[in-house]
């Protein structure tokens, strides 16, 4: 705390000039509190919320993983069971399926969802008509602000087996489509397509901002030198957004065990558990609906540990390849 004194001197505000030096520590704390009580009071609610809703549950994870938790006995009086929960986790037949589904869905999201916003941003950036640029941007952002239930409603309107417009169209073309809402083959594509639909315009914003930072002179000079549009894209546009692309790509690694709880919970059903049940939905059902707290916490713990390692790795990679990380 005391080393902040040097910062105090630099900040050149009158009230922050240290009033007393070389005093007893208790006295110093008193002075600090007296001088900064307002700022501490302003931070206090956040501190309390962080302690209760972040530190406490993080601390509780350990006893929950190694105890057999009984809701009525509480966390102190529930018996320790050693590694039983973790053993149950790794021998559970569900765990492999759930882990695989989570990773497969995340990887699909990344492979199919990462590039559409980049392409949309480049094309939008190159549009000569500013009016069309503005209008299309406004329209493509919109789905980001719709809730997943609304998106699911739109999906129902399009592909419900009775009178969804796409189903009706396919039927009129002479096909007999299956019920796509509960189809195992179509479940993952449905997740990915709707997620792309929802986020493509929003995802393009950050690239458009990066593109706006490229010197227009570069484009003009290139055009004068006879560069075609594909030359411009490959030699100016893509190099211009490469840092942002690298940063976002490495960071997306961190989310590989989060495959979209809100969306999956809404879209899946017992008929599609085999391809759609992910870690989060499984923890929710197993832990809260079946009250198997130990096992569900163990899975959640597994996810947190891997997630933590991934975000550290992602940050390192981002620093190495994109020149900046999240911290």
């Amino acid at each position: 705390m005391l080393k902040n004194r040097s910062v105090v001197g630099k900040s050149s505000t009158i009230a922050s000039v240290p009033l007393c030096k070389q005093q007893g520590t208790t006295h110093a704390i008193g002075v600090i509190l007296q001088k900064y009580w307002l700022l501490y009071a302003l931070f206090a609610p956040t501190l309390a919320l962080i302690i209760v809703f972040n530190f406490l549950p993080n601390l509780m994870t350990v006893p929950l993983v190694f105890k057999k938790y009984y809701l009525l006995r509480g966390i102190w009086d529930s018996p320790w069971v050693g590694l039983a929960n973790l053993e149950a986790l790794f021998t559970s037949p569900d765990f492999g399926i759930v882990l695989r589904n989570t990773i497969v869905i995340s990887v699909y999201r990344l492979v199919f969802g990462f590039f559409p916003p980049i392409i949309l941003a480049i094309l939008t950036h190159d549009l000569l008509s500013h009016r069309i640029k503005r209008i299309t941007q406004s329209v493509t952002y919109l789905p980001h602000f719709l809730s997943w239930p609304i998106v699911y409603g739109i999906v129902l309107a399009l592909i419900n087996p009775a009178n969804g417009v796409i189903i009706t169209f396919l039927r009129n073309m002479g096909f007999t489509p299956e019920n796509l809402l509960v189809s195992e083959t179509f479940f993952r594509p449905l997740l990915i397509i709707t997620a792309i639909w929802k986020e493509v315009g929003w995802g393009a914003i950050i690239y458009l901002a990066a593109l706006a930072g490229i010197e227009p002179e570069l484009y003009e000079a290139a055009t004068v030198d006879g560069a075609e549009w594909y030359h411009r894209i490959f030699y100016i546009t893509l190099p211009g957004i490469k840092p942002v692309v690298t940063l976002l790509l490495t960071l997306s690694l961190a989310g590989i065990l989060s495959a979209g709880f809100e969306q999956v919970y809404l879209f899946y059903s017992p008929l599609t558990y085999s391809v759609g049940d992910i870690i989060d939905t499984w923890v929710y059902r197993r832990g809260l609906l079946s009250a198997d707290f130990g096992l569900a916490t163990a899975v959640g713990f597994f996810k947190s540990v891997i997630g933590f390692l991934l975000i550290i790795t992602a940050n390192k990679l981002a620093k190495r390849y994109a020149g900046q990380g999240i911290w």
Partner: peptide
């Protein structure tokens, strides 16, 4: 304090302990 706030970014508690706290 800034480190404490950053900590919440890194260590997201699991659903079950969070539920029990709530």
């Amino acid at each position: 304090f800034i480190k404490l706030v950053l900590f919440t970014f890194l260590f997201v508690p699991g659903l079950i302990p969070y539920y029990l706290v709530v």
